[in-house]
Design a binder for these strands. Structure first.
Lengths: 325, 325
DNA sequence: GATTTAAGTGAATATTTATTCATAGGTGGA
DNA sequence: TCCACCTATGAATAAATATTCACTTAAATC
């Protein structure tokens, strides 16, 4: 019986605190006890489940999928965006918006941003960033050379420049092709002082924004603008690669896949990426699902922004192997 | 769209704070924002009803009835006890237990307790009090003389003495009948130095424990032990009295009813009672409902302890008149 | 386009809450 | 009955949270 009276009292205290929003000191005075006791009663009220706190996710948000992604891949954070249809265009737009919002909200002063320029999703992100008046970031560093024809390469530089302008940072473009003609050609290009200067900043990057690419005839070929030969692509596939970040490949287990191509790519390596404080990956879409799954397993990524359909597929995938790092 | 992203973020913060029980500073660090912002987001989460806190009353407690009583009668507190049947014996036992628990939990050091001795419910309370080793109260003052035959009078004194012993206080009994034979007899009795000493303490009482009596042939007559004549009782009834506290009467509107009897009663007055810091009334039962209703309307009572049946009747009673003081 | 108004931010600070500490009473075993 | 141990308490204090302040930027109005 005395326990019931005690619970009765606890319930009353909980009522006064949570519903009537009185301060503990006032409740204590009212009931002639110490504030410490009120605090303890409230703790007990939690334990006894006399007070219950529920967090309701607003519709259009996917807290559960996010939690699932975090748990499955050991991510620091995950953002799953609403998306009406499972179509690449729509998905990129939504991810870009969310990424822009996230960047604006969490960008630190003096940040060194690395951006793997050739990704349409990242482009969408940049389009959605509002100019920040007080220069927040320090440098924006392009982490992969331009791709394909000079026009597209120009575009990539512009993306970097624009992001730098929006964040009030200094732009460090990588005035080189993403893929050199040969190992020797790469060495020559690396001799350029501007290229070298930018690449030396790779180690200083505090926030990297990257896209994830899928390795499969259509995707890869389309993106590469024919800089890789069919033969080379076949090699990559045979080596087990399922996707790339900045043209660095990994397999479905998240293991890095070394290929002769590495010798020709001018851009950040996965090892360098792994050392960056925050690595944010932007990717979604049916065709990229496997690539994203592998990318997450590399342990390089801290935060993934994706769409609800892809998130669902990533969480569903039955692979008993335990998640990344 | 940005609003959705903001809500998404708020929901995530709420999740981290309420479910994962992380500190605001840690959440802030994780999401790269200031603790102040996290605090604000959590506030917003409340407003947006993303977090909901519910207080569930443990079964066997009647938070709603208590709230109803408080609202209707302007009480500081109300305690409604579980009770299996609407029968006086059972009700008194439960109220007594609850009162004992409440007293133990909230008794202040140096308290001067006034106790209107002749009430079976109060007796039950005293029976349930555990002895308090460290003398908590200062005095226990009997606020109404004994009633009826000397044996019963003795009993009343014992109740006071016992309560004093249990609370480690000094007992101040009122060695006089509760009702003198006449106005003159009362004056003589008041001349007694011990009686006077006790009555002078009435003004010092910080906590009064009283019962509520019903005015109706059976109740009143039974209690009075024939000290009041039929004629006198009829007068009281005609004056509109519905009940009494310490033999001081009031009507159904809570207005004090002065009667010739007042001249004969040796005990605390309602005016004196009104000045006491905490007045705790113990009463329940079908027959006392109207008396309790009137008593609460006097505005003298700060805290009522009653049973669920009586509480229900008190809250239900439709009297549009607005509640007490 | 200029100017006022409103809204949002982090650092500093005030306020509120949780915990530690010292103490006291209760409990159960020898 | 006495002792060891456990629990509960309030005062003091540590820790955590809310608010103020000064400032910046976005939006609204002229």
């Amino acid at each position: 019986m005395s326990r019931l009276n005690e619970l009765r009292m606890i319930a009353r205290v909980a009522q006064m605190y949570h519903v009537e929003r009185q301060r503990q000191a006032d409740i204590a005075k009212h009931l002639r006890m110490s504030q410490a006791t009120v605090s303890r009663m409230l703790k007990k009220a939690q334990e006894e489940e006399i007070v219950r706190t529920t967090v309701v996710a607003p519709s259009g948000t996917y807290a559960e999928l996010e939690a699932g992604l975090r748990a499955r891949f050991g991510l620091t954070e995950a953002i799953v965006v609403e998306c009406s249809e499972d179509r690449d265009g729509a998905i990129m737009a939504r991810i870009g918006e969310a990424a822009a919002h996230f960047l604006e909200a969490t960008l630190q002063p003096e940040e060194v941003i690395g951006v793997s320029s050739w990704s349409e999703t990242i482009l969408r992100m940049v389009e959605n960033i509002h100019p920040m008046k007080s220069g927040k970031a320090k440098y924006v560093v392009q982490t992969l050379g331009g791709m394909g024809n000079p026009t597209v390469q120009m575009h990539a530089n512009q993306l970097t420049t624009r992001l730098a302008k929006l964040t009030g940072a200094e732009a460090n473009v990588l005035s080189a092709p993403g893929v050199a003609q040969s190992r020797e050609a790469k060495l020559v290009l690396l001799g350029d002082p501007f290229v070298r200067e930018t690449m030396e900043l790779f180690g200083k990057i505090t926030l990297a924004i990257i896209g994830i690419g899928a390795v499969e005839p259509s995707g890869m070929l389309a993106r590469s603008g024919n800089v890789f030969s069919k033969r080379e692509l076949a090699d990559v596939t045979e080596a087990g690669a399922v996707g790339d970040m900045s043209l660095r490949f990994f397999d479905s287990d998240g293991k890095f896949v070394k290929t002769p191509l590495d010798e020709r790519v001018i851009g950040i390596t996965l090892e360098e990426l792994a050392k960056v404080d925050r690595v944010i990956a932007l990717a979604g879409g049916q065709t990229k699902t496997n690539a994203i799954d592998g990318a997450l397993k590399t342990g390089v990524i801290d935060l993934l922004i994706t769409d609800k359909f892809t998130a669902q597929r990533l969480v569903d995938t039955e692979g008993q192997r335990n998640a990344a790092e």
